[in-house]
């Protein structure tokens, strides 16, 4: 796999999706970075372990974590950063193959692809959920710590 090329293409694709979703102009580059990191993690996991479902989970997880961090930095809603990053993980080719096999009356093959596409969609959702829960726990912990710190300084 050609790393720099894939990094560049996924960066460009996520940035282009940012334009389609009309995200604020100054966040376009960071949006591209989110898409790039998600895709690179997805690809490297996929190449290492050859499991598209787990790889998609990792990709979505990374996208959501990076999007949360950027949302804190920019003080903007998190979806601005995550939408474009999610798109490359969408199981487009599997859904397409399922559709094609249905048309060709090859239902066994079609069900195989459709189930894979469904599982991958579920993996995207679970990746988002895990990242969200993790970030919420972390922010709560951090808030409690700052509160404690302020308590100390007031004494």
């Amino acid at each position: 796999m050609n790393w720099p090329l894939e990094a560049f293409l996924s960066f460009l694709a996520a940035g282009a999706f940012g334009i389609i979703f009309n995200i604020p102009r100054k966040t376009l580059v960071s949006c591209g970075l989110v898409g790039m990191s998600g895709w690179l993690f997805y690809r490297s996991y996929y190449l290492m372990f050859d499991d598209p479902i787990q790889a998609t989970f990792i990709g979505a997880f990374i996208v959501a974590i990076v999007a949360h961090i950027l949302a804190k930095i920019f003080k903007m809603p998190m979806i601005i950063f995550s939408v474009a990053g999610i798109i490359p993980l969408v199981p487009g080719s599997r859904a397409y193959n399922a559709m094609r096999n249905i048309v060709e009356n090859d239902y066994a093959e079609a069900v195989d692809f459709a189930v894979q596409a469904l599982m991958i969609s579920g993996a995207i959702a679970m990746g988002l959920v895990f990242a969200e829960v993790l970030m919420q726990l972390y922010f709560k912990y951090q808030a409690r710590r700052t509160q404690k710190k302020m308590g100390f300084t007031q004494e």
Partner: peptide, 12 residues
């Protein structure tokens, strides 16, 4: 942007 994204995804 849609055109660029399509071309990128073709390769990806």
């Amino acid at each position: 942007a849609a055109a660029v994204a399509s071309a990128c995804f073709l390769i990806l």
